[in-house]
Design a protein around this nucleic acid. Structure first.
Lengths: 333, 333
DNA sequence: TTGAAAGCGTTACCAC
DNA sequence: GTGGTAACGCTTTCAA
């Protein structure tokens, strides 16, 4: 059996409530007692039981983060920002990989509710995610990160996906491209839909006709980019440039292009989205739209803790995306 | 105030102990009662408090994982395996980024002990890590993953680093290289030291003299590879091939080589270690030594749970590395 | 098959 | 400044 506060009290010759006061640095305790208690703690190698404490205080200093897949570098970098900042404020964070699977999300949410985590960073929300909407009712504070739910005006932090999609497409157009395709993310995410919106908006603005066969649904992973690109390449009139909804899709697209004997950017230009750390080391170095992932993760925690500790909510925050020009796009005539 | 087991008991017209039995699926309860209790639970939207439960049962079904940096793809893939398998067994896992900083490690360990996590996956251990060794005494079960502590014969799972280093170096030698350098990991990790051992062993086996200036200490990150490679390039007689202790170091090394106007593999061959998911998409596609990261993470959880639930310990497990030939190495005369 | 009561390790309130 | 006690929400043992 582990040593408890009572063991410490006995060893120090005081009452357990006094030990508690010392541990929690409450005022009005004699120096003498403090010293005796600490030395007893040390001697007995006492570790307070946070679980028991939380039963009284209702605070366990634990958060959780729901993401589709930590092995996706975008989410890994987000996670780094989240965990670092949480830790700075004295919180731990539980990692949950949902694979964007609704059942997994529900199961996690139930478990986390039982463990009384104080807040959630949700980077997996589907477009109408009823289990997240329910969170609103149960009162567990959360921040939607990089994903939104249709109609919600509060508590989300994300890149301006429409602006990002616009920026990418505009760049391709400025390079002289007219046959521009888009490999989108899953249609059940606002992220994917908004990037499409930006894509279409740029097309419209610059008078480039939108062609239905030039858009395909990917999965935000390499394989999806590969598959959709293969389809584009079978078209009678393949695109000369493609904007992919993230960097991983770009990697898959480039692979497909090469396999068909074409070159990037000589034959087809590619622009990604995210600017994951390794984007500049791909072949060719990937032109992309940058999201400040670590900073977004960090900001999400700051806002989440403001909700938890001071009960303030925030209108949705939109981060400005940035074009990063490298070598995967080329000008055509 | 949240609804408690007593509220449910009252609503169902039974005693709270009965509700507890129903929730925990204990035998010998009438169908009738079960039904009434469940309907009360539903009606009141009751969520059991796992913290209170754990106070009695001493089980909170939570593990933690200490890694240097989740944004490093190697650890992200390890983490994916860990979290997935833990979740399968009904455990949650707390993520901790230590940056291989001893103070951070100590702080985390203390916090985690207070929260009474039941087990630890440690992928950050230094070569003589006294805080981890102390874990052994306090009795918190742990598995060392991809890192060892000098002298410990139990509870570690890692790739056979010596064999991996040997494999990589042998391959370079088989390609005709004699001026072979090594960019190592931090010298305070067994990982780095064992890969060096493998490197030297291969050199010795094939009669290639070891040259002190051909080895440099990196940090397992891109920048480290870049810096050490720069130094190699300033040598009077730069290496024609470099084995880097992980893929990220390889990426940095390639960057440095290119910056100096040389080509990989035409002028200098590079072989990495890990085979992160994106390794085949670098320029050039990286030849490397494969570690089955996801499987290792998964295995670590299986072994950890065996320790937690059945108190069985294991002798150190060594995973066999595998050479993956791609395009970053070339034969010379 | 169920109820009553004790207890898990803390904290917080009320005395003194 | 400090001690005593109740309470947090649950499980478990004992009795009925």
């Amino acid at each position: 059996m582990r040593t408890t506060i009572k063991d410490v009290a006995r060893a120090a010759g005081v009452h357990s409530s006094t030990v508690s006061r010392v541990i929690n640095r409450k005022p009005c305790i004699s120096q003498e007692t403090v010293k005796r208690v600490f030395s007893a703690i040390e001697q007995l190698n006492y570790t307070p039981n946070a679980l028991a404490r939380s039963l009284k205080t209702k605070k366990i200093q634990t958060l959780a983060m729901l993401i589709p897949d930590i092995s996706n570098p975008f989410f890994a970098e987000l996670a780094r920002g989240v965990e670092d900042t949480a830790n700075q404020y004295g919180y731990n964070v539980i990692l949950c990989n949902t694979d964007d699977c609704f059942e997994k999300e529900v199961t996690y949410l139930k478990l986390l509710a039982e463990k009384r985590v104080e807040g959630l960073i949700v980077a997996t929300a589907q477009i109408r995610d009823k289990s997240i909407l329910e969170l609103g009712k149960t009162g567990c504070p959360y921040i939607l990160l990089s994903r939104n739910i249709k109609g919600l005006q509060e508590n989300s932090i994300s890149i301006d996906d429409i602006a990002g999609g616009y920026l990418a497409t505009e760049y391709l157009i400025s390079l002289g491209h007219r046959n521009i395709a888009h490999i989108a993310g899953p249609y059940n995410t606002t992220t994917a839909l908004d990037r499409i919106k930006g894509f279409k908006k740029a097309l419209l603005t610059y008078g480039v006709p939108f062609q239905k066969q030039y858009i395909g649904e990917g999965d935000f992973r390499i394989t999806g980019g590969y598959q959709v690109m293969k389809q584009f390449l079978e078209l009678e009139n393949p695109p000369t440039a493609v904007f992919t909804a993230n960097d991983l899709l770009a990697v898959g697209a480039i692979e497909a292009i090469r396999e068909n004997g074409f070159d990037v950017p000589a034959d087809i230009s590619i622009i990604g989205f995210d600017d994951i750390k390794l984007a500049s080391y791909f072949s060719p170095p990937l032109t992309t739209i940058r999201q400040p992932m670590v900073e977004m993760g960090s900001l999400a925690i700051v806002k989440l803790l403001e909700r938890i500790e001071h009960n303030i909510t925030h209108p949705n925050i939109l981060i400005k995306p940035e074009l990063v020009v490298r070598k995967s796009c080329r000008r055509i005539n």
